[in-house]
Write a protein that binds this DNA or RNA. Structure first.
Length: 479
RNA sequence: GGCGAAGUGGCCGAGUGGUUAGGCAGAGGUCUGCAAAACCUUGUACAGCGGUUCGAAUCCGCUCUUCGCCUCCA
């Protein structure tokens, strides 16, 4: 069985094989850290987290790089616009680096909550200025870039394959829809900045052969990817909105500099929408993760994301989240029921589920189908557990091993004890469990003496306190 | 204007040239003191119009609609 990945470059699913046997080099565009992360970030990084997890489970050693963009870039590629990090720094009355650090930490807090594994290396753009300058020097030397007034631009005309990723190869045609009146020192309107001279007010700036300035946005990914992963890498991921211009620029500057293919597999995840409209910070419709986590278990958000395919748009709504909450709880309940069942004699073959799960994941990381397999397995387990035979210990262990591998390791939506991750009870949990046992004993006694008024009162009032009791065949459970 | 993606049952959301996706919600049932859960049964959906085909929701064409990118952006 082999893994197939949809390659944005060829627009087809291709069989995946790394350049070097057993080792996968992977780079994913990280966030620009000038605000708290929103649901869109969650979709992107959860999606690629699953990619990394599945590659590792498939036996590859994955070297996973995800950068932090902590250089403020202009909101406009002309010489207008503002540096977002600097703007936020002025707003918060502090300096840009503090803003970058603060929101970097915030980003990881949120990602940790979502169960997103940390990358092997998380390089910051500001820590790789010399590498970026070296790349610009190389491009100038090879005739692909030129300097004007302390600014350096990449000459798109000099690189014939520019725009091949996005399909935007006709630069003339593209100009027709662009705003008029952009006076520019660039030779061609499509040329993009590699280095920009800083004006007086600019706070983040570095010395370079051309000016005191700062690197162009596209440059950092090329420089850092090549530094840590080599000139040709296996997988480069990012959001779809970055196909153009960001990724096309990356390809141009990298391949111009090395003469080698930059990326073998381009992967692009689709957007989160609200009422069909893209979620974005600048659109002011983004849903902050920290806000969502106040009312929703992060695992539910992860599950919600993985219930759609990474290349599909995902529409956010309260009802959709609610449906995911119920659905995930069902999976957790089954897992717990399985663990707590008294050993029986029933046997159950789950090899077909394992096979279908693997096939789904190997088919361009089809997590919705993989999750559907888990639901079908859940139904089968519950049905078996409802029989008098129950399930034998050996069968139980086989299923649990699969759930652990598929649900916990691959998708990261289940954990070992079948509980949600968000509950930070730990120390108080024992006490609560003991109190609950007292209450449940009382209720059992009440029910024995047919005092249903009392037993229902205990149940109802616990429910009001947020604890639900269920009388199952194997005893009372609460959650 | 250019480039790209998509329109699936009440909602979310996969997939595919002929066989049940799955989840949530709804209806009926089993179980239970009741409830909840679980399980069983239940929906015959694929924007519209043409075409190819023995057969298309799935391929092709056209039309309509939506979305993303062309400025920072996951």
């Amino acid at each position: 069985m082999s893994l197939f990945i949809y390659n944005s470059l060829s627009r087809t699913k291709e069989k995946f094989e790394p350049l070097h046997p057993d080792i996968v080099s992977m780079y994913v565009c990280g966030p620009t850290v000038y605000g708290h992360s929103h649901l869109g970030h969650a979709k992107s990084y959860v999606s690629f987290d699953v990619v990394v997890r599945w590659l590792r489970l498939s036996g590859y050693r994955v070297k996973y790089i995800q950068n932090i963009t902590d250089v403020g870039h202009l909101t406009d590629d002309a010489d207008e616009g503002e540096d977002k990090i600097m703007k936020q720094a002025q707003l918060e009355k502090t300096d840009p680096m503090e803003i970058a650090q603060y929101y970097t930490r915030s980003f990881y807090e949120d990602m940790d909550q979502l169960g997103v594994l940390r990358p092997n290396i998380a390089p910051a753009a500001t820590a790789h200025i010399p590498e970026q300058i070296a790349l610009v020097e190389k491009l100038i030397k090879c005739g692909y870039a030129y300097e004007v007034n302390g600014n350096v631009y990449f000459s798109v005309k000099s690189f014939g394959r520019y725009g091949k990723l996005s399909g935007r190869t006709d630069q003339e045609a593209m100009q027709s829809g662009i705003r008029v009146g952009v006076r520019s020192e660039k030779r061609e309107p499509a040329d993009f900045a590699l280095w920009k001279k800083a004006d007086q007010r600019h706070l983040m700036k570095w010395n370079s052969p051309w000016s005191v300035g700062y690197p162009g946005w596209h440059l950092e990914c090329s420089a850092m990817s090549m530094k840590y992963l080599g000139e040709t890498i296996d997988i480069h991921g990012g959001g779809m909105e970055n196909k153009f211009p960001h990724h096309d620029c990356e390809i141009a500057q990298s391949e111009a500099a090395t003469g080698k293919p930059y990326v073998r597999f381009w992967m692009h995840n689709n957007m989160v929408t609200i009422n069909g409209i893209k979620m974005g910070k600048s659109l002011k419709n983004s849903v902050n993760l920290k806000d969502i986590f106040r009312t929703t278990d992060p695992m539910v958000i992860r599950f919600f994301i993985l219930q759609s395919h990474y290349r599909s748009q995902l529409d956010y709504s309260e009802t959709a989240i609610k449906a995911s909450t119920t659905g995930l709880a069902k999976l957790h309940d089954t897992q717990r029921r399985l663990r707590e069942q008294k050993p029986g004699t029933g046997e159950f073959d789950c090899s077909s589920f394992i096979l279908r799960f693997t096939e789904a994941m190997d088919d361009d990381f089809n997590t919705p189908v993989a999750i559907a397999v888990l639901f079908e397995l859940s139904k089968a387990i519950n049905a078996a557990l409802d029989c008098n035979d129950g399930l034998s210990d050996t069968t139980r262990k086989v299923i649990e091993a699969f759930l652990d591998r598929a649900g916990r390791e691959a998708l990261g939506i289940l954990n070992q004890d079948g509980q949600s991750s968000n509950r930070e009870l730990e120390g108080s949990e024992n006490k609560l469990a003991r109190v609950m046992n007292i209450l449940l004993d009382l209720r059992i006694e009440a029910r024995k003496s047919k005092d249903f008024a009392l037993s229902d009162k205990i149940r109802d009032q616990l429910l009001e306190a947020g604890i639900e009791i269920k009388d199952t065949k194997d005893g009372v459970i609460w959650s």
